[in-house]
């Protein structure tokens, strides 16, 4: 690994300034703006963590809700025995463990098995948790009472966001990231040059799952009362896929471009047209496939290339004249 370039330093400093700016929102914005900012921060971390795995591999993971819910439950169950920061780490470890099981079972095989497995994963974990709570504990649901308020959740999320971006960047420069790019381009080639493809994929899926679990843990105090249907909300999985792909996964900050507009749109939809949300989600998926197959950042990159070509053509024409 070489040292970061000047350009990367510039991006890092710019990112830090944005983070600090967002961290100041609680002092100026209204309650509504603050809660919207928390949502945006939450989806930013979720989508970036999702894209870490699904971007290079092109495997559509729908396990987000399962990891998120496990993180939330880890906090609900351990709140009385362990301090909160430790619980966040425990949540990450639990989600990572689940990711490892799913990954080892499916990622040795073709991508379809993986998608199918993750499709019902949240439902599976939800059923098991509900069954276990109704049979072995006194109530279905847990109270999460903490002293944290919206701004504390926001600050924790921003810290995690910084961590996700740095991890993503470090991976993309490491041997693992290089291996993933080869796997994404052609898995057979990757196997032939001696990459343990299954191991690389499982490892990346575990890292991505751990981050999602930690987001669930940080968000737990916001729920106050955690029960299976709200913790394992499958819509989170689908929304993360849409936002990440709308933005594009070929840049680390790509998902962000999708997160901000779509979070605001969804917020308005659930407030004014709750029954129309599925249609909007469906249209968003169709738009991704038919209009923006590489996301907004991909489109911008294509346009950039096109403009360069035009300039070249214009320059050549000028020389000829």
């Amino acid at each position: 690994m070489s040292l970061p370039t000047t350009r990367e330093w510039q991006i890092a400093v710019g990112g830090l300034i944005v983070l600090i700016g967002v961290a100041l929102v609680p002092f100026f914005g209204s309650g509504y703006v603050l809660s919207l900012t928390v949502n945006i921060a939450m989806y930013t971390v979720l989508c970036t963590a999702w894209a870490m795995f699904s971007g290079p591999t092109h495997y559509i993971s729908l396990a987000t809700a399962a990891f998120f819910g496990i993180g939330t439950y880890a906090v609900g169950l351990g709140l009385e025995t362990l301090p909160f920061p430790v619980l966040v780490l425990v949540a990450g470890a639990c989600a990572a463990a689940l990711a490892a099981v799913v990954g080892i079972a499916t990622l040795r095989l073709s991508g379809v098995y993986f998608v199918i497995f993750t499709l019902g994963l949240a439902e599976l974990v939800k059923q098991v948790v509900t069954w276990w709570q109704t049979n072995f504990t006194t109530s279905v649901g847990l109270y999460v009472f903490t002293d944290f308020r919206e701004q504390h959740i926001l600050w924790m999320l921003l810290g995690l966001a910084a961590l996700v971006f740095i991890t993503s960047w470090a991976i993309s420069r490491s041997k693992l990231g290089f291996a993933m790019r080869i796997i994404g381009n052609d898995e057979t080639v990757a196997k032939h040059v001696g990459i343990d493809t299954a191991r690389a994929k499982v490892l990346l899926f575990v890292i991505s799952g751990a981050f999602i679990g930690m987001v669930g843990a940080i968000l737990a105090p916001r729920f106050a009362y955690v029960e299976p249907p709200s913790a394992f909300n499958t819509m989170i999985s689908f929304q993360v896929v849409i936002m990440a792909l709308l933005g594009g996964t070929n840049r680390i900050w790509g998902p962000l471009v999708g997160v901000i507009p779509f979070t605001i749109l969804m917020d308005q939809m659930t407030a004014y047209f709750p029954n129309h949300t599925p249609i909007v989600i469906g249209l968003a998926f169709l738009a991704i496939v038919y209009v923006l197959p590489h996301g907004v950042t991909g489109l911008m990159a294509d346009l950039g290339k096109l403009r360069k070509r035009f300039k070249l053509v214009a320059a050549n024409a000028g020389e000829g004249a």
Binding site: L245, I279, L283, Y290
Partner: peptide, 19 residues
């Protein structure tokens, strides 16, 4: 590539139908 595209497109159809 077809698998990824068809998965995403049929997700779209899923939600449109459901909606």
């Amino acid at each position: 590539a077809l698998e990824v595209d068809s998965i995403l497109a049929t997700f779209g159809l899923l939600f449109v139908f459901q909606g």
